[in-house]
Nucleic acid binder design. Structure first.
Lengths: 229, 229
DNA sequence: TCAAAAGTGTTAACCATACACCCATGC
DNA sequence: GCATGGGTGTATGGTTAACACTTTTGA
């Protein structure tokens, strides 16, 4: 069933740069391409937008189909439209970036595409198309945004220690932070709930576990409060 | 000459939210639609992306064709893809926002579309499609970005007084700024060149004219300097 | 008892804010 | 000489940045 138009139309795709954090590295979710072009290469999950489908729904669908990952914090990143970016012809891609609690996603759930894997952003394979550019754009956006929006919590388990949080910021921002100043600042915001729990099974003093108070943040935000690290 | 594809494809358009500043108001460039849908309504300049044309080139072309405006500072804003946003069918639009020196553009140059005009952002006509949403998104982006990137200068003449600059910030941010603190801060950055010239034809003490030192900013930026108002 | 990470305060430098008057110019 | 906006300094409070030791726990 062919579709005919008076003027030629570019193809429209979505791509997702999904970040995860495993207490050690910042990681990105990639899939291995089965088909040409770039068969065998690693690439960002993504695919064609369906006719009646909102863009964000398309990314979520592709992510689920290709990697089994769902329940992701997503934001639109940038639309890449260089006429040369895809050898098959004009393909414009709306890229999103996503943040995921790796603690709840390390198993890539059963799916038709099992060739998905997490790679440290510091050690990436060659990528298909212009996906290295997309990934770099997403990485820079994450670095910029994490400092003045509380999105870092999307990468941590619901309950986390202050050291985990600090380490996350240090990893994303690629610079060390002072422990006392970090704790002072983050606790002074009053956005963390002390869960009363402590770490389990660690071979040193167990740290307290905190949770991010999303509701309080939303209330403060309306009053003009600005989160900032 | 029809074009046939195996799967249906959305149409792809670009739209531009171009801001100007006239020492009084922040203004937006709109065109009056000649054709249905929304014939007679005001709308953002924009149109279909051609097959071999980069997205930004498409916005610049449409801007020139529809409004005669060229030589605009442009950044990609957001891609709007709600399936219901255009009554004609699925149309995905990549929106850009632009900044223009009104002092150099108040004459809308000769063009095929003469139905273009500047409107104060505080007093807009009803807009076609979802263009009010796009405009609102652009306005918020401008308010956010102007504070930590020196893009405000794109809205002023090459040579400007500190009062003009302050007034621009007050207009964009919609709040008053302290004159002495503003001058102190902006001059302390060392990014303004005193041109040695002064205002002409004013009925009060003439102010000094400054220029933004783009080169110095780019050099400082590389070293990690952050512009901030 | 050692290793490993948790937890905790103080000081000094800097920056942001609040605030009011004199100056130059044209009419 | 008056109206208009140009131009300037200081004091205060708050914020950031630098910095090191004690505590808890498990092995």
């Amino acid at each position: 069933m062919p579709h005919t138009y008076e003027y030629p139309r570019p193809s429209l795709t979505v791509d997702a740069v999904v970040f995860g954090f495993d207490d050690q590295d910042l990681k990105v979710l990639l899939i291995q391409r089965a088909l040409e072009p770039f068969a065998g290469n690693w690439a960002l999950p993504g695919g064609f937008v369906q006719m009646e489908e909102p863009l964000e729904a398309a990314v979520r669908r592709e992510l689920r189909e290709e990697t089994g990952v769902s329940n992701v914090y997503l934001e639109q990143l940038f639309t890449f439209g260089d006429p040369e970016r895809d050898p098959r012809g004009r393909v414009v891609s709306v890229a999103y970036y996503g943040l995921v609690k790796l603690s709840e996603h390390h198993v890539l759930a059963a799916t038709d595409a099992r060739n998905a894997a997490w790679f440290p952003v510091t050690d990436l394979p060659p990528l298909a198309f212009d996906h290295d550019r997309i990934l770099e754009t997403a990485h820079r956006r994450l670095q910029g945004k994490v400092r003045y929006q509380p999105i870092g919590f999307e990468l941590l388990p619901k309950h986390f220690t202050l050291s985990q949080l600090q380490h996350l910021y240090e990893t994303v921002l690629e610079r060390p932070l002072d422990k006392r100043n970090f704790r002072k600042k983050i606790l002074a915001m009053g956005l963390l709930i002390d869960t009363g729990e402590i770490e389990q099974d660690v071979s040193h003093r167990a740290a307290r576990l905190f949770a991010f108070n999303q509701k309080k943040y939303q209330a403060l935000e309306k009053k003009g409060f600005n989160f900032e690290i």
